[in-house]
């Protein structure tokens, strides 16, 4: 019995890594016993989804998941209640151990203005005119360097 035999359900649920998925697909191509088990699982899955699924809600989950997967390092795995709205209903601060690059990535995902430095947040500079000012030597959470250039909105002269 191969280890792939035990992974059929997680495989069908889409919870395996890409490498494991390839392994299970390769195994299914050659093992008749697993192919029959997989067929049974597929039949139940189809029946359950047709009977219980709400397509609109499912689509909402999938779109939120895709957005999350395209931005690496997102700290928040949950789908906001008002997704795909423009802003979060409640601005939840990140837990202290997850502050850092992921916080900025998450900020970008939910279209909040990122409060970070130029090293962390290149997109901060893209949307509006900014100017470089000297910054106090605070540690940067992403690059672990002190100081650097801080971008702030250009003042009108």
């Amino acid at each position: 019995m191969s280890t792939a035999c035990e992974d059929l359900q997680p495989f069908l649920d889409g919870s395996l890594s890409a490498e494991d998925q390839r392994r299970v697909r390769g195994h299914l191509a050659t093992c008749d016993v697993c192919a029959r088990r997989f067929h049974d699982l597929l039949q139940l899955e189809m029946l359950a989804r047709l009977a219980l699924e709400d397509p609109a809600e499912s689509e909402r989950w999938v779109s939120a998941r895709q957005a999350r997967e395209t931005v690496p390092g997102s700290w928040d795995d949950d789908v906001p209640e008002n997704w795909p709205g423009d802003v979060l209903a409640t601005q939840v601060p990140p837990p202290p151990d997850r502050e850092g690059r992921a916080w900025h990535q998450g900020a970008r995902r939910f279209r909040r203005r990122c409060p970070g430095c130029a090293n962390c947040c290149p997109w901060f500079a893209k949307t509006e005119a900014v100017e470089a000012v000297s910054a106090p030597r605070l540690p940067c959470p992403r690059t672990s360097r002190s100081g650097g250039t801080l971008m702030r909105p250009r003042t009108r002269r």
Binding site: P10, D13, G14, S15, A48, R49, A51, L52, E53, D54, E57, S58, W61, V62, R65, D77, D78, V79
Partner: peptide
Amino acid sequence: AFELHARGLRHAEIAR
């Protein structure tokens, strides 16, 4: 758990 799964949620999302 089964109802949430059938609605398209992943294991981690159901756990949450």
